[in-house]
Amino acid sequence: MSKNVLITGCSSGLGLALTHYYLEAGYHVFGISRTQPSITHENFTFKACDLIQTQLIKNNLKEFIQNIQALDLVYLNAGMLGEIKSSFELTIEELQEVYNLNVYANKELLDILATIEVKTIIGLSSGASVNGSKGWASYSLSKAGLNMLLNLYSKEMPNSVLLAVAPGVVETPMTDYIRFDINDQEFPSAQRLKNGEIQTPEQAAQRLAKVAQQSDKFESGAFIDVRSL
Rank of each mutant, 00 (worst) to 15 (best):
A137T: 13
N151V: 03
N60W: 04
K3M: 15
R192W: 01
L71H: 03
V98P: 09
N106P: 09
I39T: 05
D216H: 04
S142G: 07
G221S: 08
F44R: 04
E156L: 06
G82L: 04
I84P: 13
G9S: 11
I65K: 13
I39N: 08
M80C: 11
F46L: 04
S33W: 01
P201T: 10
L14P: 10
M174I: 12
T54L: 04
I7V: 15
S12P: 10
E202A: 11
Q199Y: 15
L150Q: 10
T200W: 13
K143T: 14
D72M: 01
L61D: 09
S87A: 15
L229C: 09
M1K: 05
L101I: 14
E117S: 13
Q36F: 00
G13W: 03
F187P: 02
V98L: 10
I182L: 00
V118F: 03
V170A: 08
G135F: 02
G132C: 02
A204T: 07
M157L: 14
A114H: 09
D176E: 14
V161N: 07
V74K: 01
T91I: 03
G31N: 06
D111T: 12
N67H: 08
L193H: 09
Q199F: 14
T8G: 09
E89Y: 01
E63S: 12
S87Y: 08
N100C: 13
L113E: 07
V103P: 13
A25I: 01
E117N: 13
G168I: 09
Q213V: 06
V5C: 05
L163M: 08
A212N: 07
K155G: 07
V165A: 07
H41G: 14
E93G: 11
E97S: 14
G15Y: 12
I178D: 15
V211W: 00
L81H: 13
G26R: 00
S140H: 02
A105T: 10
G79M: 06
E108I: 11
L101V: 15
S133G: 05
Y99N: 11
N59V: 06
R34Y: 13
N100D: 15
R227Q: 14
T200V: 15
Q191V: 05
S160V: 09
V226E: 06
L95M: 09
A209K: 02
K119E: 13
K210W: 02
I198R: 00
L23H: 01
Q53G: 07
A114P: 05
G135I: 13
D72K: 05
D72I: 00
Q96I: 10
S11Q: 00
Q36G: 07
T120P: 07
V211L: 06
I178L: 11
S33V: 10
I116D: 12
A17R: 01
E93I: 14
Q36D: 08
V29W: 00
S33P: 12
K47A: 13
I198M: 13
L23E: 10
E197I: 14
M1I: 11
D184S: 14
G123A: 10
S86R: 04
L14W: 01
S189F: 11
M148H: 12
Y177C: 14
S215W: 04
S138N: 15
